[in-house]
């Protein structure tokens, strides 16, 4: 399996998806290992709930498997299509959660202390995730896609089903809000002065 996956590491997502659609199990394994961490990471940041994010990741991957036989080559990027599914699933869950209990968002887990050098990095990452959680849903999604997932603005527009200008507006407002809320944690994050 390791050799087969090594051999597939340079194969584009779309080629693997088509191979899976033709019954190739190695392609399924390669896509699972490549895409599951990405969709899980995105969903976890948007939802701030690991268990919910795992469910979303599994559901999104299942939809990808079902789409494989119908996949039309060159029409869309696999990751853009998949993130769009994740974004919609997350939006549905956030709407439902909002209807239930706003205070039930779980507190971030305390990571076990790691190496000294990694502590500040972990603290910074955690602080960012806390601040992201306070953003409105659409701003949070746009900022995550742009600055953590590395998507371009036109790709984000496709994922979120909005215009490029709306993406620019959302990411700009989101970043301003993050900068403002994190300004109060400057010392904690190792930024001694402004």
């Amino acid at each position: 399996m390791v050799m087969a996956l090594d051999a597939l590491s340079d194969v584009p997502d779309e080629a693997l998806l088509i191979a899976y659609g033709n019954g190739d199990r190695d392609a399924a394994r390669a896509l699972t290992l490549r895409l599951t961490p990405r969709v899980l990471g995105y969903a976890a940041r948007v939802l701030s709930d690991r268990a919910e994010a795992e469910d979303v990741a599994q559901e999104a991957m299942l939809r990808l498997w079902r789409q494989a036989p119908k996949w039309r080559q060159g029409e869309a990027k696999v990751t853009t299509w998949l993130y769009r599914v994740v974004a919609n699933l997350c939006t549905d869950r956030l709407r439902k959660a909002r209807g239930q209990d706003l205070e039930s968002v779980p507190e971030p887990e305390d990571d076990a202390p790691g190496a000294e050098a990694g502590l500040q990095q972990a603290a910074r990452a955690q602080a960012l995730e806390d601040a992201l959680r306070a953003l409105p849903d659409r701003q949070r999604q746009a900022v995550i896609l742009r600055h953590l997932e590395g998507f371009t603005n036109p790709e984000i527009a496709e994922v979120m089903d909005i215009g490029v200008e709306a993406v620019e507006s959302l990411t700009a407002r989101g970043k301003r809000a993050l900068a403002a809320s994190l300004g109060g944690r400057r010392a904690e994050l190792g930024y001694e002065d402004g």
Binding site: A28, A57, M61, A68
Partner: peptide
Amino acid sequence: VLADAEAAMP
């Protein structure tokens, strides 16, 4: 995820 892939595989 892999079990789903196996079940949904054409």
